[in-house]
Write a protein that binds this DNA or RNA. Structure first.
Lengths: 350, 350
DNA sequence: CTGAAAGCGCTTACAG
DNA sequence: CTGAAAGCGCTTACAG
């Protein structure tokens, strides 16, 4: 192990196999025909010496790194805490499954606020060509970084709500539509006083979309949108609790709640329990995500399959990376399904 | 934007600034003295043209990639589900904070079982020199991959329990000691029938360590270790519930439980509530991790600061990467603190 | 303080 | 089917 400081290179293989380095390259990459006999000799040596081409050298000439970056334009803490457990790991897993299979490495990066002086990390990664393409998770309105990559036509796919449809590739469920349909579902059950809990700050596009779906469904039903029926929650159960508390202290209390995420719905349930309210009789409840929580607490919820989003996002990026001519942006919509459980079931009292 | 297909290179800067490429390199990297005036001219051009050295070209000669890999020798799903939400994001954040500051990129990889035919991902990354070093999370007994990297003296740090102390760098809390002290705490309160819930399969070294600490504390107190007082749980609350149910159906029921992780303790609490048992009067409870759950449910728990582990792990790896001569392996122990809450407080009934 | 040149380890025309 | 040569974009002795 003393001399293994110096890795084995293509020259070593060539010498040992008695051929030129081009032939080794052709054989290894299958990029030109090589005599069967020669090929066998070469591969024997490759195996014996544990040869693996140096990625920097190869990348220098091919202009590819085989690195894909998963990026989120937020401080890591915000991203992870907003996403919650399963959400993030599901997304990562979907991405990872595809990249593994196609032999890409996964880089992970986020915006380091506080370092605002330096060039943003993602821009640096692009300029120094440290990655071939990027998956953007949880985009927000302020997207100067995305803009910059976009100007340079850097390959990217947004996994999540996309502000600029038809300009940038994206994969997501249709949060607007789910918001719309969840609300519609409550309207269909006879509710007219329907409140909404945002899954997080409206700065996150996904939150805005869900809210707008809610708003438009109300409007279509001729119901006025009221500010006091909207609560901006966060990723904690307690924000659902506080939302419920806020709604139910109004003069005219809502009879139904469209919760922005399952864990908030759990908070609503908790408040209802403590205050002797029956769900769905006193308060009907519907949510987004359909996580394990929804199942555990019997909450009606619309699926948002993050694994699928990750998988399709990675696939799309790979497609972009391997096709010759650029085509117009593609916006993939992952189907969502409403899983009906007891929390929304009954007609309202009034 | 038409001609930006071709990135700007060091040649462009040299030409534009009227100097040689070596001088540009010296100025940019501060690696040799450059006349103030020349320097200014060069940096003006660099700024104007948005120059950033190509990482592959640079890496080819420096033999550094500035990529660090966070690796776990498990399928991603196992890793994430075992770790749970905050655990993983805390670790990642600690690592990220350090890496950000020191200008490393973070690669993330896991073992793709099912692909057992191919060379393991991490070995491939090492051989093709796609990363400078690796942080290993959640190591297990079967560590042929770690062994291989270790033989090649590839820079690595284990963030988590380390099987081969004093051979491989590592950073962790002392899980054995916490297991020992948690158990000791219960003994000190007068308990003698103390059960243990493993946080996961013993295949994970962290689980084994916690269990051994428990076992040794008992032994030291002259109490016999009983198999039926040990339950192998998992990352789900329900495993705590099942553990409690199993313990309390024994002929001789335990009066205290050392829970392997907070969420299991919550499961124990749930079982106790359903069965009219008082905690801590009928069953005293102590746990590991001290997550938000411990606070919410008033569970006595020992801290395991994953953020700190990640941070120190990244720091140690950076140290290994930048020092000239190798020194012997270093094993950093992160301090743990026992946070006493009501779940353990009272003396046992018997 | 500055430049010309070699070389890092590959791939890819080009010629045969 | 195979090899010699150029070149990817840098860094780093070496000379001056």
């Amino acid at each position: 192990m003393k001399k293994s400081d110096r890795s084995v290179t293509i020259k070593d293989i060539a010498r040992e196999a008695g051929v030129s380095i081009s032939t080794v390259s052709f054989a290894f990459n299958g990029t030109a025909p090589v005599a069967q006999e020669t090929k066998e000799r070469i591969f024997e040596v490759i195996k014996r010496l544990n040869y693996q081409p140096n990625s920097a050298a190869r990348g220098l000439v091919t202009r590819k790194t085989n690195n894909i970056c998963l990026f989120t334009p937020h401080p890591a803490s915000d991203f992870f805490s907003f996403s919650g457990n399963s959400v993030f790991s599901d997304l990562l897993q979907g991405i990872g499954d595809v990249l593994d299979q196609r032999d890409y490495n996964l880089l992970i990066a986020w915006d380091n606020l506080g370092h605002k002086a330096k060039t943003p990390k993602l821009v640096k990664l692009m300029r120094e060509r440290a990655m071939d393409g990027v998956l953007i998770a949880l985009p927000s309105h302020d997207s100067s970084v995305i803009e910059e990559l976009s100007e340079h036509q850097f390959p990217m796919v947004i996994v999540g709500t996309n502000d600029r449809k038809n300009q940038i590739n994206s994969v997501d469920v249709d949060n607007y539509d789910i918001g719309y349909r969840n609300t519609k579902h409550m309207l269909g059950l006879g509710h007219s006083r329907i409140a909404f809990i945002s899954p997080g700050p409206l700065e996150f596009l996904v939150c805005e979309d869900r809210l707008e779906g809610y708003r438009d469904a109300l409007q279509e039903a001729g119901i006025k949108y009221r500010e006091d029926y909207v609560f901006i929650g966060d990723e904690k159960e307690h924000s659902g609790y506080r939302a419920a508390s806020s709604f139910l202290s109004l003069k005219e209390t809502p009879t139904a709640v469209v919760s922005g995420r399952d864990i908030q719905a759990v908070g609503v349930l908790e408040y209802a329990r403590e205050n002797g309210l029956s769900v769905p009789n006193d308060l009907a409840l519907i949510s987004f995500e359909n996580t394990e929580l929804a199942q555990k607490y019997n909450i009606t919820s619309s699926t948002t399959d993050l694994y699928e989003i990750g998988k399709e996002g990675a696939k799309l990026l790979h497609k972009v990376l391997t096709r010759k001519k650029d085509r117009s942006a593609q916006n993939v919509v992952i189907a969502s399904e409403l899983i009906i459980r007891s929390s929304c079931g009954a007609k309202p009292k009034s």
